[in-house]
């Protein structure tokens, strides 16, 4: 069952693998933005997570510890952003850019002795019975634990924001920080937590690239995926379910263009390589053109909260 040298089962299975890092990072950023904070440092946190996870996995031999280290690394870097924006009241856009510049440099510094090493591999979990379903089994039920974790995270984030008290507080802080403050909620503490969650998720996403997807360490390994994750949050109108759709859409484009390259399609390689970025622009335009006036963005997004 091949179409022009591309096997649809492998294509769809690798789609899930390619989408996972985008999904993890975009979910984290969505929670951060829901609390009213725009952190443009996703790319920096991802690549820091990628290198921390890679080093920890190689040194300990355990990919699980690698992912733990990646989450800690991403979160640690995001705390710098928290410090800048919540304590030092810095404008969020340049602070996020600074985080990306810093993270990229830091990752390349930490990773310089790890180029060309193969990390320990993460075993695939074969879900009993379900994995034997023809077509669907190999596509959906033969992946590693992180793929399932990312899907679980979509549900968890959705339920957290919609049904829990803490989720309501987080949304309140993002919609009107003055009112939330007046009600006695700790605006800065909530935002620190949201920033930290975003950092940890970006770190996990980065480690998924360096430990599973590639799996290797090279400079600039995240190659713009953090920025695509930011765009997907806008595309998804700050809804967890749509983040999943967006991430899988872009994972799909990435995998398809890689497969077309490998299959030797008569399209220039460069055009295929730029297609995810072009698609992102098109999607952003469609989303912003469709909305007249009202957007679903948290009302306090990017605003500084200060009491004196």
């Amino acid at each position: 069952m091949d179409f022009g040298g591309i096997n649809p089962v492998i294509l769809l299975a690798s789609l899930m693998v390619a989408s996972t890092p985008i999904l993890l990072a975009a979910l984290g950023e969505m929670v951060t933005e829901k609390s009213g904070v725009l952190n443009l440092g996703v790319e920096g946190m991802m690549i820091t997570g990628a290198v921390c996870g890679f080093i920890a996995a190689v040194e300990t031999g355990s990919p699980t510890l690698g992912f733990v280290a990646a989450a800690i690394g991403g979160m640690a870097l995001s705390m710098l952003f928290g410090l800048l924006t919540q304590v030092f009241l810095t404008t969020q856009v340049p602070a996020g850019l600074a985080l990306t510049l810093m993270g990229t440099g830091l990752a390349s510094l930490l990773g310089q002795n790890y180029v060309g090493i193969k990390p320990p591999s993460l075993p695939d979990l074969h879900v009993p019975l379900l994995q034997d379903i023809p077509f669907i089994g190999p596509v959906v039920f033969q992946h590693d634990a992180v793929v399932y974790l990312s899907l679980f995270a979509v549900v968890a984030v959705w339920a957290f924001l919609k049904y829990t008290r803490a989720g309501l507080v987080l949304r309140a802080v993002g919609e009107n920080h003055a009112a939330a403050h007046a009600l006695g909620y700790k605006v800065k503490l909530v935002r620190f937590a949201a920033i930290g969650f975003g950092g940890a998720m970006a770190g996990l996403g980065g480690a998924y690239i360096s430990l599973v997807r590639v799996p290797q360490w090279t400079d600039g390994i995240t190659a713009g995926i953090g920025w695509i994750a930011l765009a997907i949050v806008v595309f998804a109108s700050w809804r967890a379910g749509r983040v999943l759709i967006g991430a899988y859409l872009f994972g799909g484009i990435t995998v398809l263009q890689l497969n077309l390259q490998a299959a030797g399609a008569k399209v220039p390689v460069e055009l295929l390589s730029m297609s995810p970025f072009l698609a992102t622009i098109v999607v952003l335009v469609v989303i912003s053109a469709r909305r007249h006036g009202g957007t679903n963005a948290p009302a306090m997004l990017g605003r500084i909260f200060h009491t004196s």
Binding site: L84, F88, T90, P94, L101, M102, G103, G105, S108, L109
Partner: peptide, 26 residues
């Protein structure tokens, strides 16, 4: 000294500068 160290140095400069903005505005 690896070239990435300079990149970190430059990123650090921007971060510290942004943090110090608080003295300008507050």
């Amino acid at each position: 000294l690896p070239s990435a160290a300079i990149q970190v140095f430059q990123g650090m400069l921007l971060m510290i500068l942004l943090a110090m903005d608080i003295l300008v505005n507050y």
